[in-house]
């Protein structure tokens, strides 16, 4: 292969990696932006719900001897229930309090979940098994089955979520609450129940993302921290509460990280994320898809 061929292969490989990571970022950011849109809470615990989803799947795979797909489904179901409980027990009682109370409560949930995971599974890095470890070669590019699975599953999930929001009355109700809470009450939408549903969906998406990607990465109690940082960057640059913003933002960020990491230095990968944020916000201060007032 000539020099140019090598350079192109490197670039394509980085784009491929960016798409894999971007799929995960987008799924996590989608949940965060949905919850922000409907409840106006920046949920700092969202990354830790993701972490909990990964540990539940790990438990189901290793201790309960589930195979991969039942474990994935089980983790999603458990996190949906956890999401419902967190909304009812933590956020619903605070809905009439100042917003900062809910923010602080979400930090509390975050610390609680991290301590819980550490108490049950210990502080060490764990490896999640997967039956999809084989490497596929497409031309000069290589990709694991698991990476391919991440991308396909994430895209399927985004399509399903979009159909649910755009084609069903309940989905329309979620968007309505996000766009005008009082207007939604006036047409008879029970905003409390919509908040529960939204939180459950967001938690389920986080669990799904975590179980998809953790076999590639590692499992540890603080794994949610970096994810939530990235997810916040994404929804800020995409426009707080915007769904297309979260999806596009996720891929933009991941591609910038992987391409920037390859050509500048992987040491600066996380710095690149924030450089992208600053750059986009300096051009569009309200994010790519700002919600109209």
């Amino acid at each position: 292969m000539d020099e140019w061929g090598v350079a192109m292969t490197l670039l394509l490989q980085e784009i491929l990696n960016g798409i894999v990571v971007g799929s995960i970022y987008s799924l996590v950011a989608l949940g965060l932006t949905l919850v922000y849109g409907v409840m106006e809470i920046p949920n700092f615990a969202h990354g830790h719900l993701y972490m909990l989803g990964a540990y539940i799947a790990f438990f189901l795979l290793t201790s309960a001897h589930f195979s991969y797909w039942p474990a994935l489904l089980g983790a999603v179901v458990v996190l949906v229930v956890v999401g419902l409980l967190v909304e009812r027990l933590v956020f619903n009682p605070l809905r009439k309090a100042p917003q900062v109370n809910a923010m602080i409560a979400s930090v509390g949930v975050m610390l609680f979940l991290e301590a819980l995971a550490q108490a049950i599974w210990g502080p060490n890095y764990l490896q999640m098994p997967t039956p999809y470890g084989n490497v596929l070669h497409i031309g000069a590019l290589s990709v694991t089955q698991q990476q391919l699975l991440v991308v396909v599953a994430a895209i399927v999930m985004m399509v399903l979520l979009n159909l649910f929001l755009k084609r069903t009355m309940i989905g329309a109700a979620i968007e309505a609450v996000a766009q005008h809470r009082e207007g939604a009450l006036l047409v008879g939408i029970p905003s409390g129940r919509i908040a529960m549903l939204t939180f459950a969906i967001a938690s389920g998406l986080a669990a799904l993302a975590a179980v998809l990607v953790t076999p590639i990465n590692l499992l540890f109690p603080a794994m949610g921290t970096m994810v939530i940082m990235k997810a916040f960057v994404i929804i800020v640059l995409g426009g707080m509460g915007s769904i297309p913003g979260a999806i596009l933002g996720g891929y933009i960020l991941a591609l910038a990280e992987s391409i920037g990491g390859a050509y500048i230095s992987t040491n600066y990968q996380d710095l690149i994320a924030f450089a992208v944020l600053v750059l986009i916000l300096s051009i569009r201060p309200a994010g790519l898809f700002a919600r109209r007032a």
Binding site: A172, E175, H180, G183, A184, R291, R292
Partner: peptide, 8 residues
């Protein structure tokens, strides 16, 4: 103030 859902 109408309270419509502006993007729908």
């Amino acid at each position: 103030g109408r309270m419509l859902f502006p993007q729908l």
